[in-house]
Design a protein around this nucleic acid. Structure first.
Lengths: 213, 213
DNA sequence: CAATAATTTGACCGTTTGGTAAACATTACA
DNA sequence: TGTAATGTTTACCAAACGGTCAAATTATTG
């Protein structure tokens, strides 16, 4: 009797772990490109190099696959913000936050696009996470920023929109990668574009927040 | 014999114009939310309040619908950048560019999301437009910005990444609207959020470019 | 080894999908 | 008003879709 892994009691064999990884890897490819509704199990199976029923042996539904991916991404996606430290200096913290986010856009563009696709369709799967844990985390960090402004360490500004602007400028290099490359052209679109972006963004935010070097 | 409008010779009746508008309006709803592959003709027909074959009488394929939408959006989407004037002052030009882009995010969020969806899936329909006309336009405006920097009117910075950062920060309020609302919470997520964003972004860019008021 | 459990697949099912055919309804206009 | 062009809908089709099933294969273990 085939007992789908998901419904099982405890131990996961090595083969299970490997196959699930293999599936999620393929699913990330497809979901990040076409969104939940635009993705098909057949295509994921093809990318994963296994048969569709085999895929459905590990994840019972398409939604289960998507949910597993989203949860994993959401979890790690906010790490940079969590690392934002109230005790550090504004310059160092904001600088490294930008850098970390930009590194994620460079190293995990599919994860960024998966998230973007989910939000674009109204975020039905992560609405609660956005209104709950995410909001809480942002509220907390916004308070830190506000305190910095009050203490005269940075210019007075809306901390929420500051965070939004860091998110958007950095994630842009993952979500709109095709456009960025097209506009930069062959010469300027090499991997160096991330260094250029980092330099520019640090300049922008340091200046915009009136943080003198 | 039914002759689909698209293949017709010249005159478009009033009813044609109206129905096509009605269809594109519905299609924009669906495509902007679920992307090309995630959208279905049935759903568009339902939103448009007409039967599927009727819809296909005006647009012969799903792709024709999508293409019509994309082309229209692409055309108007770049108007703000075209309005970017080399003769104006850096402060006024950049300010009004930000403002215009932000207004578009506020007034035409679906168009922004349609575009985002298209780029996310690799921009197969607009690849040429991106590499050709768009790149040309950006190259031209980048040159203007570079000249301003050379003349000491603004801080030296990468003009391409400057443009990217204006695109991303403004479009963020359309594409990630759900997330923005969730994070801001009920009190701060009213229509005033666009004014707050405008104020913040102008401050950011004026400071970041070392443009003193 | 035997036998039991876990894994994999080809064949299949009901539904949804993009799209068509043809009949029917409506409008435009001589 | 009559008639031809335009517009609309019902019924339908083949392919693709998400998912199931039972049989076959492979791994695990007593």
């Amino acid at each position: 009797m085939p007992i789908p892994r998901a419904a099982q009691t405890q131990r996961r064999t090595r083969i299970q772990e490997a196959k699930e990884e293999q599936i999620l890897e393929a699913a990330l490819d497809v979901f990040s490109m076409h969104g939940f509704r635009g993705a098909t199990i057949d295509q994921i199976a093809e990318v994963a190099g296994m048969s569709k029923p085999n895929l459905l042996y590990y994840f019972r539904t398409k939604e289960a696959m998507h949910r597993a991916l989203i949860e994993r991404v959401l979890d790690t996606w906010l790490d940079p913000l969590r690392a934002f430290d109230a005790e550090g200096s504004p310059e160092a913290e904001i600088r490294s936050y930008i850098r970390r986010k930009l590194e994620m856009a460079r190293d995990f563009p599919r994860e960024s696009r998966l998230f973007a696709n989910e939000v674009l369709r109204g975020a039905p799967l992560i609405e609660d996470a956005l209104k709950g844990p995410l909001k809480l985390l942002v509220d907390e960090k916004a308070e830190v920023i506000r305190a910095w402004a009050k203490a005269g360490k940075i210019a007075k500004c809306d901390p929420y929109h500051l965070i939004f602007s860091i998110w958007s400028t950095t994630q842009h290099y993952a979500d709109f990668d095709v456009q960025v490359r097209a506009v930069l052209g062959q010469e300027k679109a090499g991997e160096g574009r991330f260094e250029d972006a980092a330099r520019y963004l640090e300049q922008l935010f340091m200046g915009g927040l009136a943080i003198s070097k």
